[in-house]
């Protein structure tokens, strides 16, 4: 039998908070592990009363959802925290934001509503914006059209188990090209698949189908994540928590005697 530390078990989770944060600027080069370490330290500096796992090496209760790749910026990273004491979500957001480096911004913090399901089940697609410095719209546009018209575009992808061929076309549910100040921008919605298809893979696919080879490294930003709806848009994954909270407040309001309207 595994040994247990002496003393009482750590206090349980009494509140779950769900966060959306951004990684920007220089910290787009931070990896998922780098950000996880920074978040854990920031939680300590911000004195957020985290719940800890039991055992000889207690860990704070933090669930990470699929992180944007190293090198990509993001406006929509999600994480769930388990707290051992209740706190006001907005206060936690502000304190954590202040404790993190300037290039990591905590944008939203909501309390997880009971019975609305797991956060992970509310994310199955990402919206990407990829800046292509040195590429003209006139080059990108036909490349995207050719890509969308293709049935399957196989690219070689480096995975843990070596190089693997993946289809970069199927997970892309929409893609378009626009011009901003002479720089071509690729917008696209990509479904979550295994192994993941990332902006780099789609760019490799554009090189394969249309020989599009950007002269400078492209800059990708994950603009949003969520569940793909019938219209091809992604829904806000924190929406159900917010809605439940509003509903809850509404019920409270309904239970109170109606106040006279001035």
């Amino acid at each position: 039998m595994a040994r247990q530390p002496e003393g009482p078990p750590p206090p349980p989770t009494v509140q779950k908070l769900r966060l959306r944060y951004a990684k920007r600027g220089r910290l787009r080069f931070a990896s998922h592990r780098d950000l996880a370490r920074a978040l854990e330290r920031a939680l300590r500096r911000a004195q957020v009363p985290m719940a800890f796992s039991a055992g000889f090496t207690p860990h704070p209760k933090i669930s990470y959802l699929g992180a944007a790749p190293t090198g990509a910026a993001s406006e929509a990273e999600y994480v769930e925290l388990g707290l051992a004491e209740r706190r006001d979500p907005e206060e936690v957001r502000a304190r954590l934001d202040a404790a993190l480096p300037p290039d990591v911004a905590v944008l939203e913090c909501v309390e997880a509503a009971e019975g609305t399901g797991a956060l992970a089940d509310r994310i199955d697609a990402a919206v990407w914006r990829v800046e292509l410095p040195g590429v003209a719209l006139a080059e990108l546009q036909p490349a995207v059209e050719k890509f969308l018209a293709s049935g399957v575009v196989t690219v070689a992808k480096r995975t843990k188990n070596g190089l693997r061929d993946v289809d970069a076309r199927a997970p892309v549910t929409s893609a378009s090209a626009v011009d901003e100040a002479g720089c071509a921008i690729l917008h696209m919605v990509v479904r979550q698949v295994t192994p993941a298809v990332r902006p780099d893979d789609v760019l490799a696919a554009l090189a394969a189908v249309a020989d599009l080879r950007p002269p400078l490294p492209p800059r990708a930003v994950r603009a949003a994540q969520g569940r793909l709806d019938d219209t091809g848009a992604v829904a806000d994954p924190l929406g159900p928590d917010r809605a439940a909270r509003t509903r809850c407040q509404g019920e409270h309001a309904a239970a109170r005697p109606a106040e006279p309207v001035a």
Binding site: R26, L27, F29, A30, S31, D34, R41, T70, G71, P101, P102, D103
Partner: peptide, 9 residues
């Protein structure tokens, strides 16, 4: 790459 960007706490 993060080792080259600075901005440490």
């Amino acid at each position: 790459p993060v080792q080259y960007v600075g901005g440490e706490l």
